[in-house]
């Protein structure tokens, strides 16, 4: 065996386990979480990214969020201002989803202020602004009914756009990758529920963490929550099958599906 062949055999033998090990580490839900000092801390901005699909996906996501921010039980009630920056990702041409996101923002932020006032926290209600939100579009990963893997070109374009979306608030010039106090950064949390775009976005976030791009992995950015569609009772969707081993939380809405998926799947009641 020539020296070239042996090198060619040895390199993958060393590299592949190294890559696999790295992937296992960065997709382990038990990896460290960032240390935070309370909610709505101006020194520690938070960034939530939500992926909307079309039709049913958007309807379910909005229903879930509306239910969470209006829940009568304070323990279950989501305070929208806990997230100082919200990025909504919609597919190009989907003006309805963009409109729903805008309507939600206009409803949820005053609600949060109102909560603080009702609780007698006047300072919190007046000092903390509504935060910022942006609606960004990415090209469709695939047309409806087109399979995910027959569309490599559009998927690649979508991946590049997702990369841009995820890194848009980061810069290369940070000293030692430390976050700058008070500045928006990588998303802290990615919330999605199954459109093809969300699958690509989650895999892009894993790639970024794999490369520790701009320190995102060591700063514990981009934790992921996937909510399987309420319409999935017995079998997960394609996106669910692809993501169930790599997202940090995999929420299902029917008890029988928790068993069918196994692994990370959790049933915590209906969420929509």
């Amino acid at each position: 065996m020539g020296i070239v062949t042996s090198i060619l055999t040895i390199i993958p033998l060393i590299l592949l386990p190294a890559i696999a090990y790295r992937v296992l580490i960065i997709t382990d839900p038990k990896r460290n979480k960032p240390l935070r000092h309370g909610r709505q801390n101006a020194q520690e901005p938070t960034h939530l990214l939500i992926v909307l699909g079309s039709g049913g996906h958007t309807a379910e996501m909005m229903s879930m969020l509306e239910r969470a921010v209006t829940d009568p039980d304070p323990k279950l009630k989501l305070n929208w201002k806990d997230y100082t920056h919200r990025t909504w990702v919609v597919s190009s041409g989907d003006s309805i989803s963009a409109q729903r996101a805008k309507e939600f923002e206009e409803m949820a932020t005053p609600l949060s202020t109102q909560d603080h006032l009702m609780a007698g926290k006047v300072k919190k209600a007046t000092d903390i602004g509504p935060g910022k939100y942006e609606i960004v579009t990415v090209p469709r990963a695939r047309e409806i009914h087109q399979s995910l893997w027959t569309s490599p070109v559009s998927s690649l374009q979508c991946t590049l756009e997702c990369w841009k979306v995820l890194t848009t608030h980061t810069t290369d010039t940070r000293d030692g990758h430390l976050p700058q106090a008070g500045k928006t950064d990588f998303p802290d949390l990615i919330l999605c529920n199954g459109p093809a775009t969300s699958t690509i976005l989650v895999f892009t976030s894993i790639l970024l963490r794999f490369l520790n791009h701009r320190g995102c992995s060591e700063r514990h950015k981009m934790r992921t929550i996937y909510v399987e569609s309420w319409a999935r009772v017995k079998q997960p969707s394609l996106s669910g099958k692809l993501l169930c081993r790599v997202v940090d939380r995999f929420l299902v809405q029917w008890p029988q599906l928790e068993k069918a998926v196994g692994g990370r799947a959790e049933y915590l009641g209906m969420l929509v």
Binding site: K33, L35, R39, A68, D188, L189, R223
Partner: peptide, 24 residues
């Protein structure tokens, strides 16, 4: 919406999961 019952009575819903992941 249906009220949570049984073992999920104490689940904190979407907010609970988001809080846990954020490290609040």
């Amino acid at each position: 919406p249906p009220t949570n019952s049984g073992v999920h009575r104490h689940a904190n819903g979407l907010k609970g999961v988001m809080d846990e992941e954020m490290g609040f």
